[in-house]
Deep mutational scan, measured.
Amino acid sequence: DCSRLFDNDLPDGWEERRTASGRIQYLNHITRTTQWERPTRPASEYSSP
């Protein structure tokens, strides 16, 4: 389970979450994917897998 964190500095379409182990990951709501690196572009600029 991940708990949500609120971060207004993220590009549109992204959400920051913390894993059960405390690591931060980023959820792309457009492609429904996650990544460990902080995003720098809006989620819509990433392609679906």
Rank of each mutant, 00 (worst) to 15 (best):
D1V: 02
D1L: 01
D1K: 04
D1R: 00
C2W: 03
C2N: 15
C2D: 06
S3W: 00
S3T: 15
S3Y: 02
S3A: 11
S3C: 08
S3I: 15
S3R: 09
R4L: 12
R4C: 14
R4S: 13
R4T: 15
R4I: 15
L5T: 13
L5P: 08
L5Q: 11
L5S: 12
L5G: 10
L5I: 15
L5Y: 07
L5D: 06
F6C: 14
F6G: 14
F6R: 14
F6M: 10
F6Q: 13
F6A: 15
F6T: 14
D7R: 05
D7M: 06
D7Q: 05
D7A: 11
D7V: 10
N8M: 08
N8P: 12
N8Y: 02
N8D: 09
N8A: 07
N8H: 03
D9F: 04
D9P: 09
D9V: 11
D9Y: 10
D9L: 10
L10E: 01
L10C: 03
L10H: 01
L10K: 02
L10R: 01
P11H: 02
P11I: 00
P11F: 00
P11K: 03
P11C: 05
P11G: 03
P11E: 04
P11A: 06
P11M: 12
D12G: 09
D12E: 10
D12T: 12
D12N: 13
D12A: 13
G13C: 01
G13T: 00
G13M: 01
G13F: 00
G13E: 06
G13I: 00
G13S: 01
W14D: 01
W14Q: 01
W14S: 03
W14L: 01
E15M: 07
E15I: 04
E15V: 10
E15L: 07
E15T: 13
E15S: 08
E15G: 04
E15F: 05
E15C: 07
E15W: 02
E16H: 15
E16D: 00
E16K: 14
E16G: 12
R17K: 14
R17H: 11
R17W: 04
R17N: 12
R17D: 06
R17P: 00
R17M: 13
R17T: 12
R17A: 08
R18L: 10
R18E: 11
R18I: 15
R18P: 11
R18N: 10
T19K: 02
T19V: 07
T19W: 02
T19P: 09
T19H: 04
T19R: 03
T19C: 06
T19M: 08
T19G: 08
T19I: 08
T19S: 11
A20D: 15
A20E: 14
A20L: 05
A20R: 10
A20Q: 11
A20S: 11
S21P: 04
S21W: 05
S21I: 00
S21L: 06
S21K: 11
S21H: 09
G22M: 02
G22T: 02
G22P: 01
G22I: 00
G22C: 00
G22R: 02
G22Y: 00
G22K: 01
R23L: 06
R23S: 10
R23K: 11
R23C: 08
R23F: 04
R23M: 05
R23V: 08
I24W: 05
I24Y: 02
I24G: 02
I24R: 07
Q25Y: 09
Q25E: 13
Q25I: 15
Q25D: 03
Q25V: 08
Q25N: 04
Q25R: 03
Q25A: 09
Q25M: 06
Q25K: 02
Q25H: 08
Q25F: 09
Q25P: 00
Q25C: 13
Q25W: 13
Y26H: 01
Y26T: 01
Y26N: 04
Y26L: 00
Y26I: 00
L27M: 08
L27S: 12
L27V: 12
L27K: 08
L27G: 02
L27Y: 12
L27C: 08
L27T: 12
N28Y: 00
N28E: 02
N28G: 01
N28C: 06
N28L: 00
N28W: 00
H29C: 11
H29V: 13
H29D: 04
H29L: 13
H29Q: 13
H29W: 05
H29A: 14
I30R: 06
I30E: 07
T31V: 03
T31Y: 11
T31L: 08
T31K: 07
T31D: 12
T31G: 09
T31Q: 05
R32S: 14
R32N: 12
R32Q: 15
R32T: 12
R32E: 13
T33P: 02
T33L: 13
T33Y: 03
T33F: 13
T33R: 11
T34P: 05
T34K: 03
T34M: 04
Q35K: 05
Q35G: 02
Q35Y: 08
Q35D: 04
Q35T: 08
Q35M: 11
W36F: 07
W36N: 05
W36S: 07
W36Y: 11
W36Q: 07
W36K: 04
W36R: 05
W36L: 10
E37M: 07
E37C: 05
E37N: 01
E37S: 04
E37H: 04
E37Q: 00
E37G: 03
E37V: 06
R38W: 01
R38H: 04
R38P: 03
R38V: 05
R38C: 07
R38D: 00
R38F: 03
P39C: 00
P39I: 00
P39K: 00
P39D: 02
P39L: 01
P39W: 01
P39E: 04
T40N: 14
T40H: 08
T40A: 14
T40Y: 03
R41E: 08
P42V: 05
P42H: 02
P42G: 08
P42L: 04
P42A: 03
P42C: 07
A43V: 08
A43Y: 06
A43G: 11
A43P: 10
A43R: 09
A43I: 06
A43N: 09
A43T: 09
A43Q: 05
S44K: 14
S44L: 11
S44E: 12
S44G: 14
S44V: 14
S44Q: 06
S44N: 13
E45G: 06
E45P: 03
E45C: 05
E45M: 07
E45T: 07
E45L: 06
E45I: 04
Y46C: 12
S47L: 09
S47A: 10
S47Q: 12
S47N: 07
S47V: 09
S47G: 09
S47P: 09
S47F: 10
S47K: 12
S47I: 06
S48K: 02
S48R: 09
S48W: 06
S48Q: 07
P49A: 12
P49H: 05
P49R: 13
